[in-house]
Design a protein around this nucleic acid. Sequence first.
DNA 1: TATTGTTATACTCTATAACTATA
DNA 2: TATAGTTATAGAGTATAACAATA
Lengths: 142, 142
Amino acid sequence: MRDLDNSFGFQLRMLHLEVDRRARQALDIFGMTPARVTALLVIAANPGCTQTALGDALSINRASAMKMVNALETLGLVSRETAADPRAHAVTLTAAGHEAMDAMLEALRKADEAILAPLGPEAREDLLATIRLLSVQPCKAD
Amino acid sequence: MRDLDNSFGFQLRMLHLEVDRRARQALDIFGMTPARVTALLVIAANPGCTQTALGDALSINRASAMKMVNALETLGLVSRETAADPRAHAVTLTAAGHEAMDAMLEALRKADEAILAPLGPEAREDLLATIRLLSVQPCKAD
DNA sequence: TATTGTTATACTCTATAACTATA
DNA sequence: TATAGTTATAGAGTATAACAATA
């Protein structure tokens, strides 16, 4: 049997599976999912971004980004404003979106806490620093 | 704006997004996906497991596990054998499955390498050890 | 009664391709 | 010609609910 314990991709996938499952549970009462919260966070960090820019930030294409915005708009969390370029839409959080985001982040923080329980403060900082180092930060949408 | 840099869940999701994207590219020529490889690995680690047990190991339900086995069987990578309990199927890798798995793991190793490039040997071991510590290892399917 | 596999159906998230309107 | 948004369609991966066979 192959030594899966040493496969970074496999281990990360297993961890993500668990984190995602817990996040999904935590977000269920909001009618949200991890993918939607991620989109919401990117929009919050880049108010007025276009749908195409949002897609680039999330590594998804225009059509998929539009569907996400549709879902968030239906939930009343974001709105499409007119942009300088009349072809584009400027996507921004509504007041309800800002409020909801705070509640969701707190719910996610609790879900993360359950996962991170085995780690002390230093180990958590090290882990976060390492992940940040590896991750191409796709939160710039402009 | 909320400090997303310090949100473990958000950072992990972003990292997973990138790792998954590269893994998907690497597996494309095999007609495989990360989810299918994970299932294949669990089956390889637990030869003769039932579909329900596979589902438990992957945190998915029976119906979804059956679909995965169907896909892997169609690709000729696994086979359903008769189990002690005639209600169940014993799922095992075929010879082709074992061969293909080696090639896939090598392809994934290369994809991981591209992500891990910023880390030295020690940092990689630390990261892997930490992830293993957090991850409830769902690779026991029996 | 409980469990295994199965089928049917549906939802989320992604993709591609083609269309429109504007640049 | 290129770009932003849209629509239609499709596929992967998940879920629930109900069914047959077996324990």
